[in-house]
Design a protein around this nucleic acid. Structure first.
Length: 309
DNA sequence: AATACGGGGAG
DNA sequence: CTCCCAGTATT
C-alpha cells in the first residue's frame, strides 16, 4: 500500500448501518415533489439550486410556481431576466436565480435542452458545484455519485467520527469516508444519498438532535462518547447593517416597484427592505448599488433609475 | 484557506 | 438576538 494513500478506519458493520438508515428512510421520508419518480431532471436541478442554503419549507412554494411557469430549461432560457429575479422572490442569494437561468441557457446550447446526467457536464453549468452535480446525477438519473452536503457531514461526524460537528470546511477525509460508506448496489446507493441527508435534516439536526428517534442511536460514536458539546462555538454571521442586508433591501424594492427613480431608491429600499434603524451611509449605498450592477442583478438607466436586467 | 453572498423561523 | 439552512464563486 503506497504510503501517500490516506486510510479510513472501517466502520464496524456497514451492512447494518445501511439497513438501519434505509429502513428508517422508507418509513419517514418526506413526500417532496422533486422526489416524485415523475419529476423531470430539470425539476431536480431547480430544487437543488433553490435548496443551496435555503430550507425545504421555504423552497416548496417557490419551486411549484417555478415549475409551472418554466416547465423546461428552454422555457427559463427564453424568459426575461427581470421575471426570473422577481419569481425568485425572497429565497435569498438572488445570484442563484441568475445562475439558474444561465444554466438553463447552457443546457439548451450545449445539451439540446436536456439536463445532462454526467456529473462532469453538470459541474460545468453555472451555479452547479461539487454537491449539486453529484446530487442531480444521483437523484435525477440514478448515477450513484457520492453526495455530501451539510447534513451528510454532520451525520457522519457524529455517527462515525464521534464529534458534535464536522470541520468548518469539507475535508478530503470526509469525502473519503462518505465514498467508503456508499452501498455497493446502485439503487441502494442512490437511496442512501437521500436517506442520510434526510436523517440529518429531520433527526440528527445541528441544534438539538432527536437522538431518541434515531435509527443509529445504538451505533453512534458521538452518543457512545457521551454526546460531548462542540469544541468551538461557531461565530455568528453578521446581518444588521451589512452590505448583504442593504443589497437585499434594494432587491426587495425592485421586486415591489419594478423600477426605482434615483430620488426614490433609498426611501423605497428602506421601507420595503425593512432596514429600520440601520440607515446606510452614502458610501454604503453607492457600494451596494454598484455591486448589484456589477453582479448583473440590476441595471442603471441613463436617468439614474435602477431596474432589473 | 477565507470571504462574500439573503432571508427567515426556531430556540 | 443568535444560529442555521440540500453551497458556490472568487480572492
Amino acid at each position: 500500500m503506497p504510503s501517500h494513500t490516506p486510510q479510513t478506519a472501517p466502520v464496524a458493520d456497514p451492512a447494518g448501518l445501511h439497513a438501519a438508515v434505509l429502513d428508517w428512510f422508507a418509513q419517514h421520508a418526506r413526500d417532496l415533489p422533486w422526489r416524485d419518480p415523475d419529476c423531470p431532471p430539470w425539476g431536480v436541478l431547480v430544487s437543488e439550486i433553490m435548496l443551496q442554503q435555503t430550507p425545504v419549507v421555504r423552497v416548496l412554494p417557490r419551486w411549484r410556481a417555478w415549475m409551472e411557469r418554466w416547465p423546461t430549461p428552454a422555457d427559463l432560457a427564453a424568459a426575461p431576466t427581470a421575471d426570473v429575479l422577481t419569481a425568485w422572490d425572497r429565497l435569498g442569494y438572488p445570484r442563484r436565480a441568475l445562475r439558474l437561468q444561465e444554466a438553463a441557457r447552457a443546457v439548451v446550447e450545449r445539451h439540446g435542452g436536456g439536463v445532462p446526467a454526467d456529473p462532469v457536464a453538470l459541474r460545468a453549468l453555472p451555479g452547479v458545484g461539487e454537491y449539486t452535480a453529484a446530487a442531480v446525477s444521483s437523484f435525477a438519473f440514478g448515477i450513484p455519485e457520492t453526495v455530501v452536503d451539510t447534513n451528510v457531514r454532520r451525520v457522519f461526524a457524529r455517527a462515525v467520527g464521534g464529534t458534535a460537528l464536522p470541520p468548518k470546511a469539507l475535508t478530503r477525509a470526509e469525502m473519503r469516508l462518505a465514498g467508503a460508506l456508499m452501498p455497493a448496489d446502485p439503487d441502494d446507493a442512490n437511496r442512501w444519498n437521500a436517506a442520510v441527508m434526510e436523517l440529518g435534516a429531520l433527526v440528527c439536526t445541528a441544534r438539538s438532535p432527536a437522538c431518541e428517534r434515531c435509527p443509529l442511536l445504538e451505533r453512534c460514536a458521538w452518543v457512545a462518547a457521551g454526546s460531548p458539546a462542540p469544541q468551538i462555538a461557531p461565530k455568528g454571521q453578521a446581518w444588521a447593517g451589512t452590505d448583504r442586508q442593504v443589497r437585499g433591501a434594494v432587491m426587495a424594492a425592485l421586486r415591489a416597484d419594478g423600477r426605482l427613480p434615483p430620488d426614490a431608491v433609498r426611501e423605497r429600499a428602506a421601507a420595503v427592505g425593512r432596514l429600520g434603524a440601520h440607515a446606510p451611509t452614502d458610501e454604503q449605498w453607492e457600494r451596494c448599488v454598484a455591486g448589484l450592477v456589477r453582479d448583473g442583478l440590476a441595471v442603471a438607466d441613463d436617468d439614474g433609475a435602477l431596474r432589473f436586467p
